[in-house]
């Protein structure tokens, strides 16, 4: 699997390159500043890209803007955005093109190598991976609001795990219920959020977006 990395700190860039190489990713480009991200993505069209939010020259949110612009030009290009902190506002912007294949994680998650590469694979496959921190920040929010107010407590739990990018099987394992029960919950969630039957992956993104917009 071919990957592009954008990270300004040499230590982390080399670490990520080594980590990915050790897990059967081929790092085709590792760039260190904002302006070189977009050309690298367009040139290599990687199977997955790992971008740091804060990059030179302004050290604000170049990585995020580059990710959004790249996916505008190459819809569905799988990108995992890494950051020292997560912000629901940014998560919403990343998801707003509704095409999936997007991830937003704290840099800390790199430490758990297994989970990190797993997240990379899920993003590359068109899934959506939101950091549990984003999800938990939103969990404290209002519950009476439409349309999420229509969901039961259990359905909200399921949606939170879906937002983290977990498969039905993983959700079932987490909540100690059968996979069949989980599919039923998810079907109910789609129904209550008025998501028309379409490609299942896309509906999952839409459900997460509804969650973030609440």
């Amino acid at each position: 699997m071919r990957a592009v990395i954008a990270e300004d700190l040499a230590l982390l860039r080399d670490g990520l390159t080594r980590l990915l190489a050790a897990h059967d990713f081929e790092v085709v480009a590792a760039v260190e500043d904002g302006p070189s991200v977009l050309p690298a993505l367009i040139k290599h069209r990687p199977d997955v890209a790992v971008l740091d939010v804060r990059l030179p020259p302004t050290f604000t949110n170049e990585g995020l803007l580059a990710a959004i612009e790249a996916r505008r030009q190459l819809p569905g290009l799988p990108i995992l955005v890494l950051s020292q902190y997560v912000e629901p506002l940014y998560a919403r912007e990343l998801l707003s093109d509704r095409t999936g294949g997007i991830g937003y994680l704290l840099k800390d998650r790199v430490m758990n190598v297994g989970q990190f590469t797993d997240a990379l694979h899920r993003v590359a496959a068109g899934g959506t991976v939101m950091d549990p921190e984003v999800v938990s920040q939103l969990l404290t929010k209002r519950s009476s609001d439409e349309p999420l107010g229509r969901l039961t407590a259990r359905e909200r739990e399921v949606l939170a795990l879906v937002a983290e990018g977990r498969s039905n099987a993983a959700v079932a394992g987490r909540l100690v219920v059968s996979e069949k029960a989980v599919s039923k919950h998810i079907a109910n969630i789609f129904l209550k959020l008025d998501l028309a039957p379409s490609d299942d992956d896309n509906r999952r993104v839409m459900a997460v977006l509804a969650y973030l917009n609440s």
Binding site: R54, N61, E87, L89, Q137, T140, R142
Partner: peptide
Amino acid sequence: PVLADRGLDAAVQALVLAVPI
């Protein structure tokens, strides 16, 4: 960080996003 990245407008938006009402 949002304030540093995007300025006051977005930072307050982010605040509002995290409030339960």
